[in-house]
Amino acid sequence: MSPLKRIAYFVGLPIVLIVLWYALSFGSTNFFVPKPIELAQTLWTTWIGDRFFEDVLPSLGRLAVGLFFAIGLGIVLGLLIGSTRWLRNLLEPLLEFFRAIPPPVLVPLLMLLIGVNDSMKVAVIISGAIWPVLLNTVEGVRAVDSVLNDSCRSYGIAGFARIRYFVLPAVTPQIMAGVRQSLSIGLILMVISEMFASSSGLGFTIVQFQRNFAIPEMWSGIVVLGLIGLGLAIIFQFVERRVLHWYHGLKEITHDS
């Protein structure tokens, strides 16, 4: 495919949609429907400036801290549980149950246990986002390749070296699949912990706009959340490509033959 054609495919539909949106909303006086240019302006005036530092950054900070601990703890506990058979048998049904609890119900629960503060919001993110990483890691450790395992044993690679050079890399594809789910759950929890119990943050601000019928501002808030989601997806893809380049290469080759 020529580069020009590729670009056309890339931006074609988005441009068509925006033009359509522009045309349809041009003469509209509908209060609820924003106009593209107006929305772009609102996006700029609303979010660039104080609000960025007072609401957006703290929210993102909590999300980052929460995800960091969720992913870190998920991997460490997953490795531990996955490689100890009795522990795995003991905890697996329990973990399946925790995974099945819809994470948003943890917001009122942790609010009660911790109070309304930053640690509560971070705790909500951790306790909701940890499960996909944790359970995927357990599953991955259980399924490590038996021949590779024998190779490690016959060369006396054990303990920490075994985890570092064998188990952890072998489980990375599953971990990354779990991380991907954790990211979207974490973002959801960041927003609703602020919507449910907070006086600042992105989620709170957006709900405020809606309650005050500041419709263009509300729409711009939705766009900001969308952009954060998109940003997370791009970062994830970048990291995943780097960490799992061997995995994709391997997959491509086995797929061809």
């Binding site: 390749d145 038996s146 590779l148 190779s151 050079y165 890399p169 072998a170």
Partner: peptide
């Protein structure tokens, strides 16, 4: 009694005995 240090094994399944991430 366990895998001895001074022994090495080459397995039939070459595709599964090498670490694909290295």
């Amino acid at each position: 009694t366990g895998p001895p240090k001074s022994m090495a094994v080459v397995f039939q399944e070459y595709g599964r005995s090498l670490f694909p991430w290295m």
